[in-house]
């Protein structure tokens, strides 16, 4: 078997549902020991891509190689390298946690002699010790999610694929699951699909953004943070100064008035020019403007999508817009 440096290599992967191109010629690679965040709005093609990598869905076109093995040629060999937690954990509600994991261990081909150690380890890593003899149907959503993760790591696969693992959990459960994902990243390569940006920032090394079936962004987490840096401030004063005074401050571009004496100050973001926040604070104290609030605006995921899709990506959206305008 040829050993390739990348664990998963995906080449020109497409999946069409009739007219709809759910995934459209996507190519990417996953390296050993990497936690890859797969970001995208709902319906962007995240789940479809995950399903194809795990062999649940056959691609319309393209090639998936897992650890040097072609998924379509040798599905059994390739699937043994993957642990998958789909959007909805695939659980048998009538079984207990132990029975269920026992079944998972068997179908994943773990040899009889190490089965019980594998089960114990998975239970321990996912913090299921207290509930291992309980019926899965009686567990809370958070614990069920953990059982789903335990199922995905029981055969110590080189790749763990998690599809929106924190959806529908309460904030405490979300924190615990994220911690677990970070821990998984130490031993496995992980692909984490989500539409929650902070989740990716907290857990991943690299980010890919998919939109309308196309990969529109792929970079390290630092570069994403860079491109997310704000270019505006929200400021609230007790005594609002006029726009002219504010406009004279360094680097201020545009001023927008919002409700409650709030204003939004846009500025240019370059390497040499800094945000005017510091200067605003100094001026506010000196002139008794009564500064109540000063906060840099974080860009939301949607804004990033708009930005990325309108700059870097394909020209398609623009062309489409143009034609509709022309028609109008």
């Amino acid at each position: 078997m040829m050993s390739t440096p990348s664990l998963i290599s995906i080449e020109h992967l497409s999946r069409h549902y009739g007219e709809l191109k759910a995934v459209d010629t996507v190519s990417f690679e996953l390296n050993r020991g990497e936690v890859l965040g797969f970001l995208g709005p709902n319906g962007a093609g995240k789940s479809t891509t995950m399903q194809m990598i795990t062999g649940n869905l056959a691609p319309t076109a393209g090639r998936i190689t897992i650890n040097g093995v072609d998924l379509l040629d040798q599905p059994k060999l390739a699937k043994a390298e993957i642990g998958y937690l789909p959007e909805q954990p695939p659980l048998y509600m009538e079984l207990t946690v132990e029975e269920y994991l026992n079944f998972c261990a068997k179908i994943n081909g773990i040899s009889r002699s190490v089965q019980s150690t594998a089960i114990k380890k998975a239970i321990e890593r996912c913090g299921l010790g207290d509930v291992q003899t309980r019926l899965i149907s009686n567990l809370s959503k958070g614990y069920q999610q953990r059982v789903g993760i335990a199922q995905a790591i029981i055969h110590t696969p080189s790749i763990v694929i998690l599809d929106e693992p924190t959806v529908g959990l309460d904030p405490i459960q979300i924190r615990e699951i994220r911690k677990l994902i970070r821990e998984l990243g130490e031993q496995h390569s992980v692909i984490l699909s989500t539409h929650i940006l902070p989740e990716v920032q907290m857990t991943c090394d690299r980010v890919q953004i998919i939109n309308k079936g196309q990969l529109v962004f792929s970079d390290s987490i630092e570069n994403l943070n860079q491109s997310m840096q704000a270019t505006s401030l929200i400021v609230q004063f007790e005594n609002l100064p006029d726009d002219v005074t504010l406009g004279k401050l360094d680097n201020v571009n545009k001023i927008e008035h919002l409700e409650d004496q709030r204003i939004r100050i846009h500025f240019d973001k370059t390497t040499t020019q800094q945000s005017p926040a510091k200067q605003i604070a100094i001026e506010a104290v000196n002139n008794h403007w009564g500064l109540l609030e000063l906060c840099p605006e974080q860009k939301t995921l949607e804004q990033i999508f708009v930005e990325i899709t309108s700059t870097e990506s394909t020209m398609q959206p623009h062309e489409e817009q143009k034609t509709t305008e022309d028609n109008a």
């Binding site: 795990t54 062999g55 060999l77 998958y84 909805q88 695939p90």
Partner: peptide, 14 residues
């Protein structure tokens, strides 16, 4: 319907 079929499809089973 339970979506548990995915478990079998993702495992190394034919």
């Amino acid at each position: 319907a339970n979506k548990s079929l995915t478990l079998l499809f993702s495992a190394p089973l034919s």
